[in-house]
Amino acid sequence: MLQTPMADHAAPAVALAVRDLAVQFRSEQGVVRALDGVSFDLHAGRTLGIVGESGCGKSVTARSILRLIDHPGIITGGRMVLDPSTPREIDLASLDPESRQMREVRGGRIGLIFQEPMTALSVHYTVGNQLIEAVRQHHSVSVAEARNRATELLRDVGIPRPETRIDAYPFELSGGLRQRVGIAMALAGDPDIVIADEPTTALDVTTQAQILSLLRGLQEAKNISLMLITHDMGVIAEMADEVTVMYLGRVVEVAPVRQLFAAPRHPYTRALLRAVPSILARPRQRLSTIGGAVPHPGSRPFGCSFHPRCAERVGAVCMERIPDPVPPGQAGASCFRTEVPA
């Protein structure tokens, strides 16, 4: 396998190491392997972009890390180690989702930003009530202190006049402000890691730009490790330091962002990048396409999952064997084409 070291300079510590994560959804119609051996590293203070189309498992990954997988989904294997090789090391896969430890991780050590901020907010309470509660969940402070902290959080996320907005109900806010509140909620427990699941997909383009620049600013100011899940290659190019490309529940390529865009290694990444409409296009410029559609994760093709749509198949091997996964901590592609002949 063609590999290069992940970072160009001394690699920062790993904040979260996911290894061979496997998640299944079991129903009467059969077993859907939503994740099938997913591994990646999230480095401290960096942004890891996870990109893929529908059914690739990017959201399931986020929910698995926070142990928020609902019935009938179950984690069937793998480890998710927070702060590996430090005294704070903890394997999230081994915890009971309802345990106190896991609840401390959720919102405490790891914050979550949703696509639709109303998922995280209740319509019955003011923004302040919910923020204060979130702050007090993770810090033993008085209500007055928590309120100050909440106002500060609102100011941090760029909400104008936080002293008055703190008493607003979520439905009184615009979509952009609501997502800012969603970010404030994710930051309430002072997390080291923030997982953002399609945080701008529901927003307009100018609002998206504001939220992305806010996220970048907060990351730098608070030295947060950001895991950004998106389907938008533009957002990846703008935000990510490293990128994990997923397809049908597997990681197909891992690379630093510039390398990924300059020299994609996996045929899927290559095809995907060529298929993205560009704001720099010539008039009436055609796109190169990937044939077919993403199969349902329940009917994953044999061998390399991408082979039926792949324009660069090597031969029968693509249909018979699953290519080796990208070794953790390294850049590379899970593809027979890039494997060095023995």
Binding site: R286, S288, T289, I290, G291, G292, P301, P308, R309
Partner: peptide, 10 residues
């Protein structure tokens, strides 16, 4: 121009 049909599995 891609032809979707051709790529569909049987």
């Amino acid at each position: 121009m891609s032809v979707t049909v051709a790529n569909d599995p049987p």
